[in-house]
């Protein structure tokens, strides 16, 4: 079975990268193929990387409060580029009401907030995302 390909990304000006790196490593240790964009990416750069790397899922990490702007923007751009089959999830400092709004608006399939065990994230991806190459 082909491995799930994940793009972990840091949109916006946020420099908090402890969480994104920890999650990226946990996914890699769980057997996924992980690409990490590095910091300070625009939504355009992220979508370009997602398409180029041909990933199954994009994970956005935002701890700077700009999630209501940045997560919808990444979604729109994926759609515009005919890549809406790529699953979008997110994580970071995101208040509960915004988590609900992002999920209900269809902007993110799931959001993982601080204190989530890494195993839960791995399990969620394993049960919701299949590699396109299967």
């Amino acid at each position: 079975m082909a491995r799930v390909r994940v793009l972990m990304a840091k949109p916006g000006l946020d420099g908090h990268d402890r969480g994104v790196k920890v999650v990226a490593r946990a996914l890699r240790d769980a057997g996924m193929e992980v690409v990490y964009t590095g910091l300070h990416q625009t939504p355009e750069e992220i979508v370009e990387a997602a398409i180029q790397e041909d990933v199954d899922i994009v994970g956005l990490s935002i701890l700077s409060g700009a999630h209501m702007t940045l997560i919808p923007r990444v979604n729109e751009l994926l759609k515009e580029n005919g890549a809406s089959d790529i699953v979008v999830i997110g994580g970071g400092t995101i208040p509960e009401e915004d988590v609900l709004a992002l999920k209900e608006g269809g902007w993110a399939k799931e959001i993982f907030t601080p204190g989530t065990p890494l195993e839960n994230i791995v399990e969620w991806i394993n049960s919701h995302v299949k590699s396109k190459d299967n």
């Binding site: 916006g12 000006l13 625009t42 700077s64 409060g65 700009a66 209501m68 702007t69 940045l70």
Partner: peptide, 10 residues
Amino acid sequence: PRALGEVGRV
């Protein structure tokens, strides 16, 4: 443009 959504937040 890069400040969009980030002004005064943190």
